[in-house]
């Protein structure tokens, strides 16, 4: 009983401490409730599977973006990394040889880590603006993807896609489970490890972090490696969903990942925020897109609506901060 009370108190403190975050999730719940009441097809199994499948790649890449934005940086190369991952997957998988899966995974992960370390290296050692540096490396990575596969194509055999798309209980695809696992992992890293504290410290005040003896350059390189690695994994999820590779498929994800992080209330001023916030942003963005589809809004209006919603959501988040 006593323990139960303590638990309740803890929850209460957690909720009051992060008032704006609770509001954000309240909005999410309201959107879901409203949609399931007014749109009969919303709660159909197939539809929920679609929502999850759409959410996984965007969510995973947004987790990585959170790291970069907490350090007051930004990673605009994530979309290109995703495209590169889909291209590598679609060209290197060999339907006749099941072992090729064990080549593709290390390859994608290795390539993303190398890209991330190059990003981090340029940003920390050359003191380049993260926005410009990652824009430039993104352009280079795009070029490499086009070299490997100049047009959408290739093929992802079942042995690969099954690992992402198999639906547990006919509804929940594995990709969303990986997403949840990654949320927990990144949450743990950011909040319960020395590295995570250093990430926040650098975001709060880089000079002070340096004086406090933190090797800022090293942490930054790791941050961009994490962001790139998660983008690579998101690319795998995207490849599984499309069942093929596409050298430009990732480009839209770059800014949506930034938008998801900002809607969650992590701001460019750095040192604050976290992946739980980002998750709320991802939920809002994917719910809005699927609801607009369900109620039959023309895709042309969807562009306008998405733009408006991003503006409103980000203004809302940043106002509460201020």
């Amino acid at each position: 009983m006593l323990q139960n009370n303590q638990e309740k108190n803890k929850l209460k403190i957690l909720l009051t401490k992060n008032k704006d975050l609770s509001y954000l999730y309240l909005i999410v719940v309201m959107i879901i409730a409203g949609a399931s009441i007014f749109i009969p097809s919303f709660s159909r199994g197939q539809n929920i599977t679609n929502l999850f499948n759409q959410m996984a790649p965007m969510g995973i890449v947004a987790l990585g973006q959170t790291f970069a934005i907490i350090t007051t940086g930004i990673d605009l190369s994530v979309g290109s990394v995703m495209s590169l991952a889909t291209v590598i997957t679609a060209t290197q998988l060999d339907p006749a040889n099941p072992m090729s899966v064990f080549i593709v995974y290390p390859l994608v992960i290795g390539v993303s880590l190398i890209i991330g370390s190059v990003n981090g290296f340029i940003i920390s050692k050359f003191n380049l603006e993260p926005l410009i540096a990652t824009l430039a490396t993104g352009s280079i990575i795009n070029g490499i993807s086009l070299l490997i596969l100049s047009h959408p194509g290739g093929f992802c055999p079942r042995m690969f896609t099954n690992a992402w798309l198999t639906e547990l209980g006919g509804i929940v695809p594995l990709s969303i489970i990986y997403f949840f696992i990654l949320i927990l992992v990144t949450y743990f890293i950011l909040n319960h490890t020395r590295f995570g504290r250093r990430v926040y410290a650098i975001g709060g005040d880089e000079e002070k972090a340096k004086i406090a003896g933190i090797n800022v350059d090293k942490v930054k390189i790791k941050v961009y490696m994490a962001s790139s690695l998660l983008a690579g994994i998101a690319g795998l999820a995207l490849a599984a969903r499309m069942r093929s590779g596409d050298p430009v498929s990732g480009s839209t994800f770059t800014l949506y990942s930034v938008a998801a992080v900002l809607i969650g209330g992590t701001t460019f001023s750095g040192g604050k925020g976290g992946v739980i916030r980002t998750f709320a942003g991802v939920l809002i963005l994917s719910l809005v897109s699927i609801i607009l589809n369900l109620i039959g809004v023309s895709p042309f209006y969807q562009n306008v609506m998405t733009g408006l919603i991003i503006v409103l959501a980000v203004i809302n988040s940043s106002l509460r901060k201020g």
Partner: peptide, 20 residues
């Protein structure tokens, strides 16, 4: 007038212009 980062505002605007 608001705290919205220029990158997000202009990106959202580009989406609206495209829709337009």
């Amino acid at each position: 007038t608001t705290n919205i980062p220029p990158m997000v505002m202009t990106f959202a605007m580009s989406s609206m212009v495209k829709g337009g």
